[in-house]
Amino acid sequence: MLSTVENTAVRACLAGGRHLRERFGREVDAEFSRHDVKAAADRASEQRMLDVIRGTHPDHAVYAEESGDVATEGDYRWVVDPLDGTNNFVSGLPSFATAAAVLDDDGPVVGCVYVPVSDDLYVARRGEGARHDGDPVSADGDVPTAKATIAFVIGHDVKRDNRMDEAASMQAALGDVTKRVVDSWSPCVHWGALARGRIDGMVCFHPDDEEQHVGELLASEAGASTAEPGDGVYVAATTPAIREDLVDAVR
């Protein structure tokens, strides 16, 4: 059963992502607000992903970022992000992705991320590891924290709830102990990079479910060292030492 679910997740992410790649750089059809951007490409990608998912698993619950709850009953629940990195997409920056996570009663069981411009495909299944373009990957690293590159993620609620000063203080503290902090506007891209050991850590402050479910599964299945120190913070790193330094910094 899970092999079919995984195959569906891959097909859905590819369907949405390839459409985004065709549209990328050709148009900016978007609505801008103080804290978010909604692009026509979001909706078009989501429809293609939902067509694949609903066509194969009509008995599954599905939540999609643009449509909300598409179906609410089922033993499995899909969480679909049709365009992670909308700001980047409309700005002509190639860091964006499609993503899908499938949850059971114990949390994420299957996850997929597709980065269209670089043609990177990440897949994880609970208990079976993480893969990049079909090959097993691991979140290995040997750099000290002072030489580490990490990504910092904030959820939309942080902006809406006027907690940006708190987020800025966290980011500054992280910058004091690492070489570089990337202000991530496309978390799924960076989750994939962490799973391959290309970056050294992720720090998330009240992240959005659409990216976090798939990200946590990729991190755990790639063997990253993780922690949840409280107050909506999630930390993942390539080594326990970096993880502990990041946790101490955000505290």
Rank of each mutant, 00 (worst) to 15 (best):
V52H: 03
E221T: 03
H60N: 09
D120S: 10
W185K: 15
A64S: 01
M164T: 11
G232I: 00
S186N: 06
L50M: 03
A61V: 01
D135R: 12
E31R: 13
H35A: 13
S91T: 07
A40D: 08
P116H: 00
V5H: 09
V70Q: 04
D59R: 07
G155R: 01
I150S: 06
R251C: 14
K179E: 14
E128G: 13
M49Q: 04
A130P: 04
D69S: 09
R196H: 08
Q212G: 15
H206R: 14
F152D: 08
G111I: 02
V110F: 06
V203C: 04
T98N: 03
S91Q: 10
E6W: 11
V115S: 10
V247W: 07
H35R: 11
E211W: 07
D157T: 15
V137P: 04
G25Q: 03
D120I: 07
P187S: 08
P207V: 01
R11Q: 12
P144A: 15
D51F: 11
S3Q: 15
V182M: 08
C112L: 02
R34D: 14
V182P: 00
G111V: 02
L14E: 10
E27Q: 07
S118Y: 05
A168L: 15
T56D: 10
E6H: 12
E216R: 13
G127K: 06
D140M: 12
R163M: 13
A151N: 05
L121D: 03
P136M: 00
L83I: 01
S169W: 14
L217H: 01
Q171V: 13
E65C: 00
D75S: 15
S184A: 05
A227Y: 00
V102G: 10
D208E: 04
E166N: 13
G55A: 06
D106W: 11
R126S: 10
T4G: 12
Y76L: 15
G197R: 03
N87R: 12
R126E: 14
F24Y: 11
S220M: 13
V62T: 01
V189Q: 08
D245G: 09
H132D: 09
L93P: 14
T149G: 09
V123I: 03
V113M: 05
H19N: 15
D209W: 03
D104R: 08
R160L: 14
A195I: 01
P58K: 07
